[in-house]
Design a protein around this nucleic acid. Structure first.
Lengths: 227, 227
DNA sequence: ATCATTGTTGACCAACTGGTCAAGATTTTT
DNA sequence: AAAAATCTTGACCAGTTGGTCAACAATGAT
């Protein structure tokens, strides 16, 4: 799931020494920077974030950051790629061979889990799309488009087989995305409306169950499956 | 709906002359700037937007913009206030005396309409919240909080009266917000997945109906109302 | 006509920011 | 040990940006 993103970065020898005394430096430092950058970008957006902020959060001088990532844009792209790969990972759970209740339940569970564990990534993605996707347009047009089309076919088949009510598959997908990602993108609003406290484990469970219940009932997937 | 935002701005005489020969200048120019600013802020975010961009789009020199709005922040705040007032306007349709199907249908209709007619505002709001609501925190804690609480009571009453299934009112509201605002905030993604063409009138109708259907069915509001 | 108020704008500036660079430190290879 | 490669960092620079200002124009009141 990650290989696409990794650079070869000197994979010649070092097969006998104690693991990787120096080769690991680059990897560790890049990880450190990426993590800091993800947070800062999600908080301030691409232009709002400064390389100085990112360097500070990573605890290194700015020049060092630029040694590993030549430009702010390159750093940003790397992060987008990671987010997208996580997203695609969850998308796998929406496979062909399941019935609607099973497939959609699993998919919604995964998406909610990602909203909880990777809220920064979700925000960055949302930010990108809201600003016209200047960086990720190609992802939208290729990978995301293909995935969406293929899933719409599956949903349409469920409809044709009478497993769910006839709704536009597109809007069902949008609703799932919107409802699940809302818990990442609007976490601040949710927290404020929750008396300033972030959602507890139980509240997260409730949220996940309610989203699933409403959507599955909403498309009539349960009334057939139940009996 | 607007009075809060307007400045007194010389309301002495001019009650006999031909309307407002000069008094109108300020108002017209402010409108012009606000409209330009809304677009630019929604496209580039607060920091991404420059006062130069806004001035250019309004067709005036930057210094003139700063004559009417001393700082970028003041301009931004003004826009946020307007957005919020539009939002509150729609919120009215969610009144006490209706049954769930009627109240929620009307509310979702209004929200979808706003997503279509005021996508810029929705994006700016989303952007604010995603970045921790640095400007609008007070709105979240006061007005929005109160409104949300009062509507949750109504929804809870519906549940107690057996009019809808027992779900957490909070999550129902979040789902409505998420699903409807998605069509504004993610319009670019939706457009791309729609073959690069923005949604037609029919597609908007379908979206609106599907969102309503799924949510109303999802909470079991229709199965009681139908018979 | 004259004055006061309001509106207009080019030129300017201080602060910030992405990115560079050269000198030096550290580690790996030979 | 010493050469080669990699990593580190303070100082620096050029471009951008929010905001100011002084001179000027237009309009309204007297």
């Amino acid at each position: 799931m990650d290989q696409i993103l990794k650079k070869p970065t000197r994979a010649k020898k070092s097969a006998r020494n104690k693991s990787a005394p120096k080769a690991g430096i680059r990897q560790k430092k890049e990880r450190l920077i990426l993590k800091a950058a993800e947070k800062v970008f999600s908080e301030f957006g691409f232009r709002g974030a400064t390389t100085q902020m990112i360097a500070d959060r990573a605890g290194i001088p700015k020049a060092n950051l630029h040694y590993y990532f030549p430009t702010k844009l390159v750093l940003y792209r790397k992060i987008i790629e990671e987010i997208f790969s996580i997203w695609l990972d969850a998308a796998q759970s929406f496979d062909e061979n399941s019935d609607p209740v099973e497939a959609l339940s699993r998919y919604i569970d995964k998406k909610m889990e990602i909203s909880r564990s990777h809220p920064f990534g979700s925000k960055i993605w949302a930010n990108e799309v809201m600003h016209g996707a200047p960086i990720i347009q190609d992802y939208l047009e290729t990978t995301l488009r293909q995935w969406t089309d293929s899933r719409m076919v599956i949903i349409q088949r469920w409809i044709d087989d009478g497993l769910i009510d006839p709704i536009d598959p597109r809007h069902l997908l949008y609703m799932i995305w919107a409802s699940t990602q809302h818990y990442a993108d609007f976490v601040h609003q949710i927290k404020t409306l929750n008396g300033g406290k972030k959602l507890s484990d139980t509240q997260w469970d409730n949220a996940r169950e309610d989203v699933k219940t409403i959507i599955l009932n909403g498309i009539g997937a349960t009334k057939r499956a139940d009996k």
